[in-house]
Design a protein around this nucleic acid. Structure first.
Lengths: 341, 341
DNA sequence: CCAATTTTGATGTACGTAAATCAAAAAATC
DNA sequence: GATTTTTTGATTTACGTACATCAAAATTGG
């Protein structure tokens, strides 16, 4: 039978009230007494019953998700997953709210963080914009005892407790190797379509991609990056134009959103040549394109996993409990047409 | 504020005791009264506080894992993950026990299931051996109200509540496409190393592999399957022999265990030719081989995820709660040297 | 209509912890 | 040594549910 607070009290030779004071870091316990209790806790292997504690406290977990106001299908999907989580909140004692912040606007993000810190949620999950002032604010809040996790996009070098997202450098490297291997002995040029080089994820993917390309597939030349602003129309225009101008393109890596436009451009050119294409994010459009061979592989991060992981980690941090690292690692999914979910 | 049993009682105009009888399916409630209570529950959107209920019941979840007594690194890993889960059992109210059954022995498995059904655990996770008598026993136990999930290896057509494992046909198909695409225009023969064709997982992987090979890469011929019995020594012998005899081999698909032997054979022949190799299960050996380019890709199922998923599903079934399907889908991991965890 | 039976209500205790109160004891201060 | 301050104990209530008991009411059968 699991030891309870009563057992601790008996073993330490103190009262229940004192054990409670020690457990909940309440003042008014002499150092030696505190030691006695802590020894008893260790010796009996006492583990606080979190469920009972939460019941007694009437605890809920007010959580805030800070999301950029970007209108692309990945962010829509992420929003959808958060809504799913909100539906589960009764059972999970969570109380989830989302806040939209204009994208790539460090000042706005800092302002929201400041405001949140006043209303004291028990955790914040944020799609980070990588800027020094954001890092400074996050560090300050973490120091003040706020659990903060980054979602999808990390804030490197900050004190955030956890990052619920994929390793984008590894993603870029993986894309490069897949593309290089799929192309085999073929030589030629590679078009890269990104959303914006101002976004950290995209920069990192490109970084990984170019590194492996340079190291391992020197016969493939990377063309200047096309910045499609995650917009299907712009993406279509840029890709169609690049394909028309440049007959030597043998592969395409799309590391951002706006794949609808990319796919349209590819289909228009399908008769001319066979391209090998790697894209990010599994959506209705990319899925269809993978099935009809317009795209050869899709790299994906599972937004649902990211949201659930962020919630689990924030709850655990709020309770001072450990997390299972392997469980919270967000994996890079590689989808070929054969292993689609 | 979440409604409680008191609110339900008040809304339905009955006493707490009656609400309790309805909620816990105790007898002694007239049909009309039961309806009234159920209406109130629906209208107030009452959700039972599982934590409080478990506290009151002093509930624990006695779970049993039935594993084959196979001595390969995947099963060792699985065992390790179960031990990890056992360490967490205090916090999760689980009480986990493992039972070893001689591998590929339907009669032994049935006997263990029969015996378990007498001691009434609240759930069973089993690595299934695919046989009619096992299926029949499982169906009977499920009918009797036992939550049962299959682990790693499924029992198709049975009534098991859930399968915590990967889709092995999809895995085989994925391996074929990767191998085919990596080889590109090269023609030649493909060696397939399996554990045993008596194991369902292996049969399914081979089935998916040959299907895609035949459909999409007809210029690659699959050699007769080498059955290495998941034993490194035998695998080494078989692969070394095949490579020595057959100069036309351009690719290898290892769909079972015993990869240590495979890797040794590959390294011995490394000077002769460049082979493209796809193997299953990420272990120390396959990881090292992936990094030094002996293996080109590894397909993996995460044993930790499988174990945790099985536990979550069994607990949910025992409590009659829903599961989040997307969360419990075990994904096929594809590792290149760039996205290793 | 009475008796037997079923259904319902009222109430209390328990689960393990949190948190508050007030009194008592111990320690520190002057 | 008296006073103040700090520390500790004893006790109670609460969280939301489960479960048991006994009495009261309603329903059913004869």
């Amino acid at each position: 039978m699991r030891p309870t607070v009563h057992d601790i009290a008996a073993a330490a030779g103190v009262s229940l009230a004192t054990v409670d004071r020690v457990l909940n870091r309440r003042p008014g316990v002499r150092h030696v007494t505190r030691e006695k209790v802590e020894t008893a806790i260790r010796e009996l292997g006492y583990i606080r019953d979190v469920a009972a504690a939460n019941l007694a406290k009437g605890r809920t977990y007010p959580l805030v998700f800070i999301l950029p106001a970007s209108d692309n299908s990945f962010m829509h999907g992420l929003n959808g997953e958060i809504r799913q989580a909100i539906l589960r909140s009764a059972a999970e004692r969570t109380d989830i709210r989302t806040v939209e912040v204009s994208a790539f606007d460090p000042a706005a993000l800092v302002a929201v963080l400041e405001e949140l810190s006043r209303e004291k949620p028990c955790g914040v999950a944020m799609v980070a914009t990588d800027a020094p002032e954001v890092r400074a604010t996050v560090d300050r809040l973490v120091h003040a005892g706020f659990p903060i996790v980054t979602l999808v996009s990390d804030l490197t070098g900050s004190l955030r407790h956890h990052y619920a997202g994929v390793d984008n450098i590894a993603a870029g490297r993986t894309a490069a190797r897949l593309l290089g291997r799929f192309l085999g002995p073929r030589k030629g040029e590679i078009a890269v379509l990104a959303g914006s080089m101002l976004v950290r994820d995209h920069r990192e993917r490109l970084e990984g991609f170019t590194a492996v390309m340079a190291e391992e597939f020197p016969e493939l030349a990377i063309l200047p990056v096309l910045e499609g602003r995650d917009d299907p129309e712009i993406a279509h225009m840029l890709v169609a134009d690049a394909l028309a101008r440049n007959a030597g393109i043998v592969g395409v890596y799309s590391l951002g959103a706006g794949n609808r436009g990319l796919i349209r451009a590819l289909k228009e050119k399908a008769v001319d040549r066979t391209l090998t294409v790697i894209a990010h994010e599994l959506t209705t459009h990319t899925r269809a394109a993978l099935i009809d061979n317009t795209i050869d592989a899709i790299l994906n991060q599972d937004a649902g996993h990211e949201v659930r992981s962020a919630i689990r980690v924030l709850k655990a941090k709020a309770d001072g409990l450990p997390v299972i690292d392997a469980q919270e690692r967000i994996r890079l999914d590689i989808f070929l047409k054969d292993n689609l979910p």
